[in-house]
């Protein structure tokens, strides 16, 4: 069935334009006074007021590396994150763990782990793909720097941001 949209018949007041104009003026002045007296507040003034306390648990901030309860770096340098990273922000230089080390059976660890935060798109694929639960997206969102070099997070910085993560699966402890 064809639908016919009728042209609206404007009343005299609507044709005259002024009542609508007046209504609009009343509306805007009401908003003006509500905002002026602070009864209507929608803006959060960012550097002074922050959302940090309200960030949800699943917030995807900067990717970081974590250590486990024994101070072991969880990353085993499998490079899966490096290969899945869509903007190729991650560069890992693997290193063999010396035989004398307590964790020699893990075999590999990252010698250097770099994430270029200029490239990172905060997609969280690295966290998802990691078989070792070593890389997590934390709640840091304000990543700034004066140069491109400063924006590359190296291993030390990544562990600094990530810190200790407990309560995840430990597959390399002594009992296994």
């Amino acid at each position: 069935m064809a639908l016919v949209v009728n042209r609206p018949k404007l009343s005299l007041a609507e044709k005259f334009y002024l009542p609508a104009l007046f209504g609009g003026m009343v509306l805007t002045i009401r908003h003006f006074f509500l905002t002026l007296t602070g009864r209507k507040k929608t803006t959060m003034q960012y550097p002074d007021e922050k959302w940090d306390a309200h960030l949800p648990e699943w917030y995807r901030g900067a990717p970081t590396l974590v250590t486990d309860e024994w101070g072991r770096e969880r990353c085993v340098s499998c490079q899966l994150c490096e290969f899945i990273c869509p903007p190729r922000a991650i560069t890992i230089t693997p290193e063999e763990i010396p035989a004398a080390d307590k964790w020699a059976k893990v075999e590999k660890r990252p010698k250097e782990f770099e994430i270029d935060m200029v490239r990172c798109i905060y997609c969280g694929l690295c966290e998802e793909v990691c078989p070792e639960q070593a890389i997590f997206l934390r709640k840091d969102y304000s990543i700034t720097g004066y140069s491109r070099a400063e924006m590359v997070h190296n291993k030390q910085k990544l562990y600094e941001l990530g810190g200790l993560k407990t309560g995840v699966v430990n597959k390399w402890n002594e009992k296994k």
Binding site: I29, H31, F32, L34, T35, T42, T43, Q45
Partner: peptide
């Protein structure tokens, strides 16, 4: 400032 208040913003402050 007035435009900001009318649009429920803060304006230059």
């Amino acid at each position: 400032k007035v435009s900001a208040f009318i649009q429920d913003r803060v304006g230059p402050n």
